[in-house]
Amino acid sequence: MKQGIALASFFLLFAVSIQNSLAAPMGFKNSWMLMGDFSKTYQELGLNYATTANDAFGISASAMQTDNSVSKQQNLEAVYTRKVARWNLPEAQANIWFIGGLGSTTGNTFGGSKAMASPGIQVDYETTRFYSMASARVYAAQGATSNITTARLGASFYEADYDEPQPWVVIEARRMTFVSKQYEFTPMVRVIHKRYFVEAGANLSGQLRFNFMYNY
């Protein structure tokens, strides 16, 4: 746990960030957001609706497995997202988000289906050229608790207008305790354009990663 806090602090102290759509886990009021994250060890597909500028409700289906595919776990939950705080700074923005879910989990390391709660927090700081983010989330179920700790740094090649695609380089450090006690480092290329982004890369073991977000 101390290792995760230290890594997240490093990313927050030495990074600056990007456009709000790169970091935000929800869109503007009355908008839908569709998100996906796909790799060998983790897959997630989520959809939420922003009822206010600060609140969004949705659903998420996710799955985790170890590198050798021996242990597997699947989660299905209703998710609430809350913008806890926002600071509009000169040419920058900082946010704190709460993300929490209630649902069920199944897997081959335990029998049946278990009730699950998944509270989490995300902190980000961003400008039009740089991006940093740190998050932690616990997937708590009786006898089957795990957590995911993530830190990200990003930098754009150049500034772009809203109507122009903008390429970014992103490096992510992520530890999923269900998968491994070690951090997974993944460099990715991201392209953002208006209401969507796509990103692709591979971790240091060569496992492919693909993410997307679409806000409408």
Rank of each mutant, 00 (worst) to 15 (best):
V191L: 10
G201H: 13
M176P: 00
M64G: 02
F14P: 04
L12Y: 07
F98T: 10
L12I: 06
T81R: 12
M26F: 15
A144S: 09
N108I: 01
Q182G: 09
F11A: 04
Q93P: 05
I148M: 12
L102M: 13
N48D: 14
A140M: 12
S71R: 09
R174Q: 15
P187M: 07
E126I: 05
M176C: 03
S69F: 14
Y158R: 12
R174G: 05
T109M: 08
T81V: 14
M64Q: 10
A56K: 02
P167Y: 11
V16L: 11
A92Y: 08
A56S: 09
K114D: 06
T66N: 06
G112F: 14
R82P: 04
S9L: 13
A136K: 00
G107R: 01
E159T: 14
T51H: 08
F98H: 14
A173D: 05
A78P: 05
D161C: 09
N54H: 12
W32P: 00
R152Y: 06
A53G: 07
F210I: 04
S132Q: 10
S146R: 07
A155G: 10
G111I: 09
K83M: 15
Y49T: 03
Q142I: 06
S39D: 12
Q93M: 12
Q65S: 09
N20L: 06
D124K: 09
S39P: 05
A151P: 04
K72A: 03
K29F: 00
F110D: 03
T186L: 10
F110R: 06
T41C: 02
Y183T: 02
K114H: 15
I5F: 15
N48M: 03
P187L: 13
M64E: 10
S180V: 00
E126C: 06
A173F: 03
S132V: 05
K83W: 08
F130P: 02
Y131V: 04
T41Y: 01
T109D: 11
R209Y: 09
F98Q: 13
A56P: 08
P165I: 12
A78W: 08
Q93V: 14
R129C: 09
G154W: 05
G58L: 00
T81C: 06
N88K: 09
Q43W: 02
M35P: 00
T66V: 04
N95D: 14
N147M: 03
N54V: 09
A85E: 08
F185Y: 11
D67L: 05
P187C: 08
V179I: 09
S60M: 11
F11P: 00
V84Q: 03
Y183G: 02
A6L: 15
L153F: 12
A8Y: 08
F38N: 02
A61D: 00
P167C: 04
Q3Y: 15
L204T: 08
Y42H: 13
S69Q: 13
V84P: 06
I192M: 08
H193I: 01
Q19Y: 11
R209G: 00
D163K: 12
N30S: 15
G101T: 06
F178N: 00
T150I: 06
N48V: 01
G107Y: 02
P187F: 10
D163A: 15
D161P: 13
K2N: 10
Q3C: 07
T66Y: 07
I99M: 14
E126V: 09
G206E: 13
M213L: 14
F28D: 11
Y125W: 12
T150C: 01
D163S: 15
V189A: 14
A160N: 11
T177V: 00
T51E: 07
E184P: 03
